[in-house]
Nucleic acid binder design. Structure first.
Length: 470
RNA sequence: UCCCCGGUAGCUCAAUUGGUAGAGCGAGCGGCUGUUAACCGCUAGGUUGCUGGUUCGAGUCCAGCCCGGGGAGCCA
């Protein structure tokens, strides 16, 4: 007997004999002598309806006791449905119960509406719900789409390390990786913790970004990207921050800021367009239940050129805006959430690419622009942020400083210890090239694509301050 | 970390000026029906987040703590 996934059974021709396996969503009984079972196996949004006639040998003893969450195998013939709501259904000739739900009254994911806050507490069962099944499939499609996108454009996928002992990433608070006895660590003569005695012979942490490492492969393979987990030990409690999140970081040799701005726009549009095609069922659900108008919004993003705007012009625009802001707007200050939201949600109503930020608010590795770029009153660097409605910053990138003397001046200016950057500086000493890249927050992309409000609901097992269950 | 809101049945929420803790959904049982967010009836289900305080009496008032949500900062 042919075992079909539900997604394939729903498209199969009536008359086929098949086996289906999955979990019961609901069971409804009819005194006409049959029961209806909604079965899902996660392979698509829709469940399939199984019609179980009362002459099944285990009908009274087992079928009538099936409840939400039970796992079963059903054998039978696919037939055209006599009811509305589905084209085909399985007319069962045998139903085998694989796993019972031991107490239906306390089954945590019962057949009712649950809040996302509650479902977060049962993350091991929430994938069985409509919403989290759809999120999981969209997440997969976007992840594989990213690899397809870069592979199609001759980018090589580079695995940058998760554990890093280079103390130069500088993108946020880091988690320490150590095998020292936390209660009684090795100490130096002056009473400090002696990391020479630690596993790596030095202080080590979880990476906050693969960028510096991927730049080295960029300086050899030309077009590369990383896609892996990154870690920030910031005490952030918001709907768009995680302690563990996944980041996509492409890097282009012989490329400049304009090149990565174009790449970022084309990547977002390609991914969203592909998603609407490949996961039409799940996207229709998000459009109907999670964010009405979602699909139109995404279509608009796909069809409209992103607005590119120098930081200096954005400041002028915000200064002349009628809207009252809580935080000051002044050249040299970083933009606050309210300013970014105003630009992308109210003024332009589309994704906005801000470029050429003041040097004083950006990282050491960003390339210094020529004096007077965009008519700026101070020094700027070739940085870019892609802002999208509803999320804010989804991508941050820059052209990297390839000139050793300028890089060293920046390190000195920011009082960073130059010796920590020896291998990064080597790239500028040995055949340096202009290059540029960006980082895309994968979970923020999923939020943007689905309309899901809380970032903790677009990753299977969220890690956040005081949250590491499961 | 800061500001605001919340914690009552398996889940979502009610409970008047402090006075015997209730509904819907879910679950169980029965009825009806090719059903599909099914419908109708009955039943079970509670240490009101924790600790202490005020009071004749606290879900309600006070203090501390824990947990959750939203916003801000940090960023992706």
């Amino acid at each position: 007997m042919q075992w079909l996934m539900v997604k394939d059974a729903l498209k199969a021709a009536p008359g086929t004999q098949v086996t289906l396996k999955g979990w019961v969503r609901t069971r409804r009984d009819s005194k006409a002598g049959l029961s209806f079972i909604q079965l899902h196996d996660g392979t698509c949004f829709d469940p399939i309806q199984i019609v179980a006639p009362s002459d099944l040998p285990n009908y009274e003893a087992e079928v009538l006791r099936l409840t939400t969450g039970c796992s079963i195998e059903a054998v039978g013939e696919l037939v055209e449905s006599r009811g509305k709501g589905q084209s085909v259904e399985l007319k069962a000739s045998a139903i085998k119960v694989v796993g019972w739900v031991e107490d239906p009254d306390t089954y945590p994911a019962s057949a009712k509406q649950h809040s996302f806050e509650y479902l977060r507490e049962i993350a091991h069962l929430r994938a069985r719900t409509n919403t989290f099944g759809a999120v999981a499939r969209v997440r997969h499609t976007l992840a594989t789409g990213i690899h397809r996108f870069f592979d199609d454009r001759e980018f090589y996928y580079v695995h940058t390390p998760i554990i890093t002992a280079s103390d130069c990433e500088g993108a946020g608070e880091m988690f320490r990786v150590s095998t020292l006895d936390a209660l009684n660590p090795a100490k130096t003569e002056d009473g400090q913790i002696d990391f020479n005695e630690d596993f790596f012979g030095r202080e080590a942490h979880l990476t906050v970004s693969g960028q510096l490492n991927v730049e080295t492969y960029c300086s050899a393979l030309s077009r590369v990207y990383t896609f892996g987990p990154t870690f920030r030990a910031e005490n952030s409690n918001t709907t768009r921050h995680l302690s563990e999140f996944w980041m996509i970081e492409p890097e282009i040799a012989f490329g400049d800021l304009a090149d990565v701005a174009v790449l970022a726009e084309s990547m977002l549009k390609t991914l969203l367009d592909e998603l609407l095609t490949r996961r039409a069922d799940d996207m229709a659900f998000f459009d109907e239940r999670i964010e009405p108008g979602l699909i139109d919004r995404l279509r608009h993003v796909i069809d409209t050129p992103f607005k590119m705007l120098p930081y200096t012009d954005a400041i002028k625009l915000l200064e002349s805006a009628k809207k009252k802001f809580e935080y000051p707007v002044k050249w040299g200050l970083d933009l606050q959430s309210e300013h970014e939201r105003y630009l992308t949600e109210e003024h332009f109503k589309q994704p906005v690419v801000l470029i050429n930020y003041p040097a004083q608010i950006k990282a050491f590795y960003m390339r210094m622009n020529d004096e007077g770029t965009d008519g700026a009153p101070g020094r700027t660097v070739a940085a870019m942020d892609v802002l999208v409605p509803g999320i804010g910053e989804i991508i941050g990138g820059s052209q990297r400083e390839e000139r050793l003397d300028v890089l060293d001046a920046r390190l000195a200016e920011m009082e960073l210890p130059i010796e920590n950057y020896w291998w990064y500086r080597d790239l500028r000493r040995y055949g340096t090239v202009p290059h540029a890249g960006y980082g895309l927050g994968f979970e923020r992309l999923i939020q943007f694509a689905t309309g899901m409000q809380n970032i903790r609901d677009v990753i299977p097992f969220p890690r956040a301050p005081r949250q590491a269950e499961f």
